[in-house]
């Protein structure tokens, strides 16, 4: 067993959240799913990537948001994201990082109002990656767009280039970061699609929260796997990408917008 596992289990011990590491927990959850297939929620169409194996372009992670199920007074996805990624409300809200936000869209003609979460759209052709001078903004083989803070110089050109306003600039000295989401002063950051969870075969925090206590509006999965729920729905239902006209081919799709 790798030393890495030990690290994570130690972490579990210390925080007193049950004393089991994420992967151990996943194994247990998988067993439950096998025993009780009807539960559905715990069943995943994708598996944890084993240690030592890189992300592969055989996958293309995506999300589908059914905005008709996104309720006006619900923000569990935002709360879950902040908690998972160790984000806090800063002294000035204008300087606070937001990986995901809930958008209210109002049609001035019909008066129709609806709601949807917007996060990094994990585009196939991300503008942030194209413009980044150092290559800190990059797309992983499985389509997840991330910031390599080791080489981010904090120029914010990616923030100028992103049509979705998906990125934030860390303007504060950070402490007590999550070990899986390093973040700090002077670097740009954004939604990671909870890559640390996805790599362990789990849904991103926002999707889990939405399905658990929210409206059940979000689905996460592999767009390249024709048997996944997201692929089936994208194939049969009318889905839309935000600002599809810009041609960046977002991995996050919406229904009802």
């Amino acid at each position: 067993m790798s030393d890495d596992r030990n690290t994570r289990e130690t972490a579990g011990d210390q925080t007193g959240t049950g004393g089991i590491g994420r992967r151990a927990f996943l194994g247990a959850a998988g067993a439950v799913a096998v025993l009780a297939p009807g539960l559905g929620l715990a069943a995943h169409a994708f598996e944890a990537r084993p240690d030592g194996v890189p992300a592969s372009s055989k996958h293309r992670w995506g999300m589908l948001v059914d905005t008709t199920k996104c309720k006006s007074n619900c923000h569990v996805c935002v709360d879950a994201c902040n908690k998972e990624n160790g984000l806090y409300e800063e002294a000035d809200p204008k300087d606070t990082a937001q990986y995901i936000r809930k958008l209210t869209v109002h049609d001035p003609d019909t008066g129709y109002t609806h709601y949807l979460p917007v996060m990094c759209q994990h585009c196939t052709h991300p503008a942030c990656v194209a413009v980044c001078p150092t290559g800190a903004s990059f797309k992983r083989a499985d389509g997840i767009v991330l910031v390599d803070r080791h080489i981010c110089i904090g120029c914010r050109y990616c923030m100028m280039a992103c049509p979705y306003k998906a990125r934030s600039f860390d303007e504060y000295t950070e402490k007590n970061q999550k070990w899986y989401n390093p973040r700090g002063l002077g670097c740009v950051e954004g939604c990671t699609m909870c890559a640390h969870l996805v790599d362990e075969g789990k849904d991103p925090a926002c999707v889990t929260a939405c399905n658990k206590t929210g409206g059940g509006a979000m689905v996460f999965g592999d767009l390249k796997d024709p048997t996944s729920e997201i692929s089936k729905r994208v194939a049969t239902e009318q889905t839309t990408q935000i600002r599809a006209d810009l041609g960046m081919d977002p991995g996050v799709r919406y229904e009802g917008i």
């Binding site: 413009v131 150092t134 981010c152 110089i153 904090g154």
Partner: peptide
């Protein structure tokens, strides 16, 4: 810059599609 101490990175890491990098 957010990280002016990392200016050297702008010289060592070059993203060919970035007009910013070209400007360097």
């Amino acid at each position: 810059l957010g990280k002016p101490d990392r200016l050297i990175v702008a010289m060592t890491h070059f993203n060919i599609t970035s007009i910013f990098a070209w400007n360097v």
